[in-house]
Amino acid sequence: MKPWNNKAWFFVLPVLLLVAFSAIIPLMTVVNYSVQDSFGNNEFYWVGLEWFQEVLASERFHNSLMRNLLFSGIILLIEIPLGIAVALAMPRRGWGVSVCLVLMALPLLIPWNVVGTIWQVFARVDIGLLGHTLAALGVDYNYTQDTFDAWVTLIAMDVWHWTSLVVLLCYSGLVSIPDAYYQAARIDGASRWAVFRYIQLPKMRRVLVIAVLLRFMDSFMIYTEPFVVTGGGPGNATTFLSIDLVQMAIGQFDLGPAAAMSLIYFLIILVISWVFYTVMTQQDNDSVTDGRQGGGQ
């Protein structure tokens, strides 16, 4: 059978049209803004790649980018291992399963701005449960004034909000492992670590790819929660790319640079996601080629 069929394009066409209207055409208008300058009156002047050069050279962009990379890096380093650990600790059968699943799903069901508001109040030193308790314990904590405290608060909030997603994905990978694997490991005298390393981790790898990609993309695009909690402050300490971009586009109405920045932002996410995906699925591809070579034996 032929591996492709030209008629299949007709089935894809409706989706392509839909995506064109919802994503590609808006994206093209952004491309359009990014290469022009305007002084109002709907008059536009061709400026070529000037905005791109300006954005890439600006310290403001570098700082936001670094903050964003740091934030994504930290939350991935916390949420992925924590998610795996929680998934491993969850019961596999019995009534505990549904209780755990519902508890895990709760943070995921809360709208992002509500999560922001919850933590904004929760961490306040005057009335917030967390902030007040810390102050009462003698900890000098104030997320509106102190950079470190603001970061800790945002990271704690993101971990609270999104670790569940990693847990649920990992758990789905774990429950798909047949009992025979654990039994064989017992027969082979495998240690708890060996069971994790050679049975559970390989079986979770595919869902972990998804978890890492989702968590990276979402955290790299994070806007609502820091906007509600810290508003990008203190100073610019928690001004991530998205907050910076909104300030530039809507606050300052610099459409050209903002459009150029959007495109750069988009390309960074695309490239980093591609790198994650390629690295994490490397082993899969290796063994597929192996399989082809071994097919003739």
Binding site: A180, Q183, I187, G189, A190, A194, Y198, I199
Partner: peptide, 27 residues
């Protein structure tokens, strides 16, 4: 005891030789 199950149980990420060596290395 050694036990062989109805469906083959292998450690996918290891080579065939490592699979065979696994129960010995665990000692």
């Amino acid at each position: 005891i050694a036990q062989v199950f109805q469906f083959p149980v292998l450690y996918d990420t290891m080579t065939v030789a490592d699979n065979l060596a696994f129960p010995l290395r665990n000692r």
